[in-house]
Structures are given as C-alpha cells and as structure tokens.
Amino acid sequence: MIRRVDRPPRRDRSYRLRRGAYAILHREGDVLLTQQSAPQPEFQLPGGGIDPGESPLQALHREVFEETGWRIGRVRRLGAFRRFTYMPEYDLWAEKLCLVYAARPILCLDQPTEQDHSAVWMAAREAAGALGNPGDRMFLRRHLL
C-alpha cells in the first residue's frame, strides 16, 4: 500500500492517475530544489511526470535537467507517496503517484529549460519547511534530518 499524504480524494471529482519521479539532491548540507513561479510560487523537489514509453529513471533524469540544468548520478529509490490534487497548469484533477529518489547532483550544464522554474540551493533544514507539499517534506525529513 502506498501512503496517501495531504487531503483525501473528493467524492465529487474524477481523478486521473499521473505518475511522476522526483529527486532529493543533497550536497554538503544543502539541497537543490526547483522554484516554480507559476501558476503559483512554490518550492518543489525537482522532477515531474513520466511520459508514455519512458521509465521512471529516464523521466527523473530528464525532469531534473529541465527544472535545474543539472545532471545527476548515484540514483537510488527511497519510496513513494500519492496525493490527490488539482493541477491548474493542466486543468486536471490528478491522483499523483510520486516516486521519490535520492541522487547526487554531478554537474550543472545549463540554466533550467522549463518555463517558470529556477534552481535554488537551500540548507536541508530550511528546505524541509519550504517545500510546497507534505509528501516532499516527509521524504526530505526522513532522508536528511
């Protein structure tokens, strides 16, 4: 059973399953986050949706690069959580199945290519309080604090 975090699903909504892969990127006491400025400002673990035909690891590498400009290595799976939420950028009520990994940031090659995203280094303790969703916060605290 995969743990649900945040609010239970609403009975008056239909949800579409959206799988995603996300990374805790830790180096020397700091964590690399992505700050999404739209549709609302929020700090997030880098990562995102798994495209059709893509493995979770392929999606993780692609999404981390798009959102931070960094290449990653030494990836290991930590676990998963699910949450029910509205995704305004897609006008979609989603059951998000979030696969969470730990990885090492290896090399910054570029600025983020994903619109409205910027890469932010933050102290791990500060990051645990800044993350926008409870699943991200739960995994960061379990892994680093």
Rank of each mutant, 00 (worst) to 15 (best):
M1R: 11
I2G: 02
R3S: 12
V5S: 01
D6A: 00
D6Q: 03
R10C: 02
R11K: 07
R11V: 10
D12N: 05
Y15M: 03
Y15K: 01
R16N: 04
R18S: 15
R19N: 14
A21P: 14
Y22T: 09
Y22G: 15
A23T: 06
L25I: 13
L25K: 06
H26D: 15
H26R: 13
V31E: 12
L32G: 00
T34L: 09
Q36P: 04
P39R: 10
Q40F: 13
Q40C: 03
P41N: 03
E42P: 00
L45C: 05
P46S: 10
G48Y: 01
G48D: 06
G49S: 14
I50L: 03
P52R: 09
P52A: 02
E54Y: 00
E54A: 08
S55F: 04
P56Y: 04
P56R: 04
P56F: 05
L57P: 10
L57A: 12
Q58I: 02
L60P: 08
H61Q: 15
E63K: 12
V64M: 07
F65A: 13
F65S: 13
F65E: 09
E67Y: 13
E67N: 09
T68E: 09
W70D: 00
W70A: 01
I72M: 12
I72A: 08
R74N: 15
V75W: 11
L78H: 02
G79L: 00
F81V: 15
R82S: 13
R83G: 06
R83N: 07
F84M: 09
F84E: 10
T85M: 03
T85L: 08
M87R: 11
M87S: 10
P88A: 07
P88M: 03
E89Q: 10
Y90A: 03
W93N: 12
A94S: 04
A94L: 04
E95R: 14
K96G: 00
L97C: 09
C98E: 15
V100S: 00
V100W: 00
R104I: 05
P105W: 03
L107T: 12
L107S: 02
C108I: 04
D110L: 00
D110E: 04
P112Y: 05
E114R: 15
Q115A: 14
D116M: 01
H117G: 01
A119C: 06
V120A: 06
M122C: 05
M122A: 12
M122H: 04
A124K: 08
R125G: 12
R125K: 10
E126S: 13
A127I: 13
A130T: 04
N133R: 09
N133L: 01
N133H: 08
P134F: 00
D136V: 00
R137P: 02
M138D: 10
M138I: 00
M138Q: 12
F139A: 11
L140R: 13
H143D: 08
H143V: 00
H143A: 13
H143G: 01
L145I: 12
L145K: 02
